[in-house]
Design a protein around this nucleic acid. Structure first.
Length: 722
DNA sequence: AGTTAACTCATTTTT
DNA sequence: TGAGTTAACT
C-alpha cells in the first residue's frame, strides 16, 4: 500500500468493525487518518452518504471535505465526495431538526438565533435592562443547556437565589423561543438529542442513516454531544473518535474530558490507537512540549517523538515590558528573515511567523510594534463577518421572510432603516401581540390592533407589513444565482439601505466599507442560490439551485466568509485558542508570564509566599468555609491543568523555531506590577533544551548589524559616486 | 431620535 | 489606560 501511512495510522484507518478511539498527538496526522478512513470505508462497500464526519468548526469541515475529496479523486472516486456528510455538530443538528423537528413542535423553517439575539431576549425577559446580568444569564443558561438541563430541572436543583432567578428566566426564555419558532446554538445539540432519546422511530431512522460516524477533536465534546453521539451510533457503535486529551482547552465552554475517560467503560470493545509520531516539530520543540505536559496527570499514556532532524534550541526571552517584548519579537522576525539561516531552508516569508498569546488584549503592543516596523500582519479572530451590524441587518430581514414568527428579526428589520416606528409603537405592538399570543408579524394584521395605536403609527406598520408580504412572495419566486442577486439588489434599493449606511457612518470611508460588505454578502448569497457552491455548513448533500429562503436558513451557522484579499503573506497574531489545529515554521509565544499564562484573576499577581503548601492556587479570594475551600482548590487544579494544555498547544504549533517570552512588568488594572516568568517556562526544562537570550548581546548584535549596513551603504554610494 | 457625558470593567469563543 | 456601553440630555 503506497498510502504513505505509518503503522499506527494504518491500523486506525483499517479498523472498521467497531468503536475506536484514535489518540492523535499534536502534529501526528489526524486529518490524514480521518480522510483515509473515509476512503477506506467507501472501498469496503459503505455508501458515502452513510458516512458522517463531525467537526467543531466550519473551517475544519471544509478542509476535511477538501482533503477527503483529494484522496477519493486519486482513486477515481472523486464524485462521491459530495455525498459525504462532513459537517459540524451543529449543522448535523440543524439537519435533524429540519427533517424531524415537527414532533417537538418545530416548523421546518425555524430560525437560529445568534448570541446577540439571545442577549436581547434575555434582557427583555428579565425586565431589567442590564447587559452584564443578561450576559451572565446567557452564560449560565448555556452552561446548563450543554449539561442537559431544562428550565424546570434547573429550577428544581437551584442551590441559591441567584440560580433560582436564572432558572426562572430560563423558563421564560424557553417559552419565547418556541413562540418565535426559534432555537439557539445549544438547542441545535439539545433538541436533536431529545429527538433521539424520546422518539424511538426517529432514533431508528437516524441510526440507520449512518453506517460509520467519525468525530474530530473529540476532546472538545460536551455532555450533550456525548449523549447525542451515543444514541446516533446505537448498539453497533461503529464510530471513530479522534482526539487528544492534552489539547483539551475548552473546558470553560462545557467540554469535558469525562467524555474521553468514560469511553472505554461505555464501549468495552473500544479499540484504542495512539498516534505518537509527530511530523511537525523539531525534537527540541517536542521535548519542551513533552516536558511541560508531563506535569499533568495522563489519561492515556502517550509520548510524542519525531524523526525530524535537530533544529535550534528553544529560546526564552526575558523582556522588561510589553513594549520591550514586542520590540524583541519584531527584531526576531527581522533577523530570521534576513539570516542566511543554519535552520532549515525555509523561505522566510511573513506568513511563516505567528505570535501567540493568552488573551486578546495582549495583541495591542504587538500590533503597534509591527506597524512601526512596517511588518504586515493580521489579527486572527476579531469580528466575524456575520457579526457586523450591516450583515446582521440584512440577515434579520431575510430571516423574517423565512420565518414570520421570528420576533427578534422583526424588531431589527422594522427599524433598519428607520421608518417612523419607534420604541413606543413597538412596545404597544409587543404588548398587544403577547396578550393575544401572536407573533409581532401576525399582530400587524389583526384588526383589533387599530384601537391600540395612532393612525399614523398604524399606517407605518401596515405599510411595513404589506411590503414584507410582497417581498416574501417575490423571494419565493427566485430561482438561481442571477435571480437571487437581482432580487437582493432591488430590495436594498427599495429600503434605501445604501443611503442608510451613508448617513449612519462617522466617515465616508467607513460607510463605503460597509456597503462593500453588503455587496460581498449579496454576491455570496446569490452564489449559494445558484448551487454551484455548496458549502452551506455541509448540510446539503446535492448541489442544486435553491431559493433565497432556503439559503438563509443555514446562514446563522456560519461566521466567516472566505479569507479576505490582501491577507496572504502576513504575520499572524492569534490567541492560543484560535491557534489550535494550525502550525507555523516560526512561533513566538508571548506573555508567558505568571498570572498571564497560567491565567489568574488575582489582584496581585505576585503575592508573598505566606500560604504554605498550596502552590497551585490561581485565585486568592478569601473564603473560610473548608468545603468551599476544598472544592475551590480542586477547581484550581483543573484550571491549572487546562492552562498547561494551552501552553502545550502553543508550543506544538511550532515547526522549526520557538521563542517564548515573558515580561518583568505586567499590567494589573490601571497600574504596573512586577511579574515573574510563568511556571511553565521552568517546566520546559530549559537547562537542557533552551538557550536564554541575553538581551544586551542581542541589542549589540543588532546595532553592529545596522552599523555594518550603514557602512556598506555608504561605501556603495561612494562607489557609485566615484 | 440622536448625541454627548459619565461610568464600568477588563480570559479564552465557536456554533 | 481605553473602549464600550448606558443614562441623561437636547
Amino acid at each position: 500500500m503506497s498510502d504513505g501511512l505509518n503503522v499506527a495510522q494504518r491500523e486506525a484507518v483499517n479498523f472498521l468493525s467497531g468503536p475506536s478511539l484514535v489518540l492523535a498527538g499534536a502534529g501526528s496526522g489526524k486529518t490524514r487518518v480521518i480522510t483515509h478512513k473515509i476512503s477506506r470505508l467507501i472501498e469496503a462497500g459503505l455508501e458515502p452518504k452513510r458516512i458522517a464526519a463531525i467537526t467543531f468548526t466550519n473551517k475544519a469541515a471544509a478542509e476535511m471535505r477538501e482533503r477527503a475529496k483529494a484522496i477519493l479523486q486519486a482513486k477515481s472516486l472523486g464524485k462521491l465526495a459530495k455525498e459525504l456528510t462532513i459537517c459540524t455538530f451543529h449543522a448535523l443538528g440543524v439537519r435533524m431538526l429540519r427533517q424531524d423537528g415537527a414532533v417537538l413542535g418545530l416548523k421546518p423553517n425555524f430560525s437560529i438565533l445568534d448570541s446577540s439575539d439571545v442577549e436581547s431576549m434575555l434582557k427583555d425577559a428579565g425586565g431589567t435592562v442590564d447587559a452584564a446580568t443578561a450576559r451572565g444569564w446567557q452564560w449560565t443558561i448555556s452552561g446548563w443547556k450543554s449539561a442537559g438541563l431544562t428550565g424546570d430541572t434547573a429550577l428544581a436543583q437551584a442551590k441559591n437565589e441567584d440560580e433560582r432567578v436564572t432558572a426562572i428566566i430560563m423558563q421564560k426564555y424557553e417559552e419565547r423561543l418556541s413562540a418565535y419558532q426559534s432555537v439557539d446554538f445549544d438547542d441545535l445539540i439539545g433538541l436533536p438529542l431529545k429527538l433521539l432519546r424520546d422518539f424511538p422511530e426517529v432514533c431508528t431512522k437516524w441510526q440507520a442513516a449512518f453506517g460509520h460516524v467519525l468525530v474530530d477533536e473529540y476532546q472538545d465534546t460536551n455532555a450533550t454531544q456525548y449523549e447525542m453521539l451515543k444514541l446516533l451510533v446505537g448498539a453497533r457503535a461503529r464510530f471513530t473518535a479522534v482526539g487528544d486529551d492534552d489539547q483539551s482547552i475548552y473546558g470553560w465552554r462545557g467540554a469535558t474530558l469525562d467524555n474521553l475517560r468514560r469511553l472505554p467503560t461505555d464501549y468495552p470493545n473500544l479499540k484504542i490507537i495512539p498516534l505518537e509520531q509527530n511530523y511537525r516539530s523539531t525534537p527540541q520543540i517536542l521535548q519542551a512540549a513533552n516536558n511541560v505536559i508531563s506535569n499533568n496527570p495522563k489519561l492515556f499514556p502517550k509520548k510524542l517523538w519525531s524523526d525530524i532532524k535537530a533544529g535550534e534550541p528553544v529560546r526564552v526571552v526575558d523582556a522588561d515590558s510589553e513594549e520591550h517584548e514586542a520590540e524583541r519579537v519584531v527584531a526576531r522576525i527581522q533577523s530570521l528573515r534576513a539570516s542566511e539561516s543554519s535552520i532549515a531552508a525555509q523561505p522566510k516569508e511573513y506568513e511563516d511567523f505567528a505570535v501567540l498569546y493568552r488573551a486578546n488584549h495582549l495583541a495591542k503592543a504587538f500590533e503597534k510594534a509591527m506597524r512601526k516596523a512596517a511588518i504586515p500582519y493580521k489579527v486572527s479572530g476579531g469580528q466575524s463577518f456575520f457579526d457586523r451590524a450591516e450583515i446582521k441587518d440584512l440577515c434579520s430581514w431575510l430571516r423574517l421572510l423565512s420565518n414570520n414568527d421570528d420576533d427578534p428579526a422583526f424588531i431589527r428589520a422594522v427599524s433598519t432603516p428607520k421608518r417612523g416606528i419607534g420604541h413606543a409603537t413597538l412596545g404597544t405592538l409587543g404588548n398587544f401581540a403577547s396578550s393575544y399570543k401572536l407573533s409581532l408579524f401576525e399582530a400587524l394584521f389583526t384588526s383589533s390592533l387599530s384601537g391600540a395605536l395612532s393612525s399614523k403609527a398604524l399606517g407605518a406598520l401596515h405599510e411595513f407589513g404589506r411590503y414584507l408580504n410582497d417581498l416574501e412572495f417575490r423571494a419565493r419566486q427566485t430561482n438561481g444565482a442571477e435571480d437571487a442577486k437581482a432580487f437582493l439588489m432591488e430590495w436594498l434599493k427599495d429600503i434605501g439601505y445604501e443611503k442608510h449606511l451613508m448617513e449612519g457612518a462617522e466617515t465616508e470611508k467607513l460607510s463605503a466599507a460597509r456597503w462593500a460588505n453588503v455587496l460581498d454578502f449579496v454576491d455570496w448569497m446569490s452564489k449559494r442560490c445558484g448551487g454551484e457552491i455548496d458549502d452551506t455548513a455541509g448540510v446539503t448533500l446535492v448541489s442544486e439551485s435553491k431559493t433565497l429562503l432556503e439559503v438563509i436558513q443555514n446562514v446563522s451557522l456560519l461566521s466567516t466568509l472566505s479569507e479576505r484579499e490582501g491577507e496572504q503573506n502576513v504575520v499572524t497574531l492569534s490567541t492560543l485558542h484560535a491557534a489550535k489545529g494550525l502550525e507555523w515554521p516560526h512561533v513566538m509565544l508571548v506573555g508567558v508570564t505568571e498570572g498571564s499564562l497560567p491565567f489568574s484573576r488575582n489582584k496581585k499577581p505576585k503575592p508573598s509566599n505566606k500560604t504554605k503548601g498550596s502552590k497551585v492556587a490561581l485565585d486568592d479570594d478569601e473564603e473560610d468555609d473548608t468545603d468551599v475551600l476544598e472544592s475551590k482548590a480542586e477547581d484550581d487544579i483543573t484550571r491549572l491543568q487546562e492552562e498547561r494544555r494551552l501552553m502545550y498547544v502553543g508550543i506544538t504549533r511550532a515547526r522549526n523555531t520557538l521563542m517564548v517570552s515573558w515580561t518583568k512588568k505586567k499590567k494589573a488594572g490601571r497600574d504596573m506590577v512586577s511579574a515573574s516568568p510563568s511556571r511553565f517556562i521552568a517546566e520546559m526544562a530549559l537547562d537542557v533544551q533552551t538557550i536564554r537570550e541575553d538581551p544586551m548581546a542581542k541589542l549589540k548584535a543588532l546595532r553592529a548589524e545596522f552599523a555594518a549596513k550603514a557602512t556598506a551603504h555608504a561605501l556603495n554610494t561612494a562607489a557609485t559616486a566615484a
